[in-house]
């Protein structure tokens, strides 16, 4: 005899009990799903202007959806938490990046300039120029600036956590970073957060 046979009266039809249980289980699971606050954990590792967008866009949007969000900034990702953002973009070695001019007549804007790597690498100030063009393109298209998205994240209680080891590794000073950083931690502290999250992204 199993445990259930002892608890249930002898004459009880087990299929009725099973049906009751299934219904109850469904209700309970639905209640649990409704009360669950989804969570997102992002590991941001890159510090260029283009790669700064995905973590901040996803974090701010998730928080607008009512999710609980934490972003762990490590290695070059720490640049995204500096008080003064000087993010640049490098088209060098990035064949997927369109090189288009954000000004002039439409036919001119539509040209995708194929610039050889050798020229990009050899021309002084090329990255500065590419960064300027990117910033203008962002502005023309009504895409938010990184500063704006970061402020929205801070306003909406996204937890911005920074990697302590990277600070020491690269010789950064804590003073260079925004005071809104929730915590300075290491991998061992962030992994449990990532473990419990519904969505975890490495960017």
């Amino acid at each position: 005899m199993g445990k259930l046979d002892i608890i249930l009266p002898e004459n009880l039809d087990k299929s009725i009990f099973d049906q009751w249980f299934d219904e109850r289980f469904e209700t309970r699971m639905a209640e649990r799903a409704a009360a669950h606050v989804p969570s997102l954990a992002i590991i941001a590792t890159k510090g260029t202007l283009d790669w700064a967008y995905p973590p901040f866009i996803l974090a701010s949007t998730a928080s607008a959806l009512g999710w609980d969000v934490s972003v762990f900034f490590t290695f070059y990702g720490l640049e995204l938490l500096k008080k003064d953002l000087h993010l640049e973009i490098s088209p060098l070695g990035n064949p997927s990046m369109p090189m288009k001019m954000p000004f002039g007549p439409q036919w001119f804007k539509d040209i995708n300039w194929k610039i050889p790597n050798l020229v990009m690498a050899g021309m002084p100030g090329f990255e500065k120029m590419a960064t300027g063009l990117m910033q203008q393109t962002v502005k023309n298209n009504g895409v938010a600036s990184i500063e704006e998205l970061r402020s929205i994240c801070i306003e909406s209680d996204v937890k911005l956590v920074a990697c302590q080891m990277t600070v020491e590794l690269f010789g950064h000073s804590h003073d260079a970073f925004i005071p809104e950083i929730t915590d300075w931690i290491g991998a061992a502290s962030f992994l449990p957060v990532a473990q419990k999250s519904d969505v975890c992204l490495f960017i």
Binding site: T61, A64, N141, G142, V143, A144, I152
Partner: peptide, 13 residues
């Protein structure tokens, strides 16, 4: 108007 993803959603929120 004139704003792009994800700004309309963030502003709505």
């Amino acid at each position: 108007r004139g704003m792009n993803c994800p700004l309309p959603i963030l502003r709505t929120k």
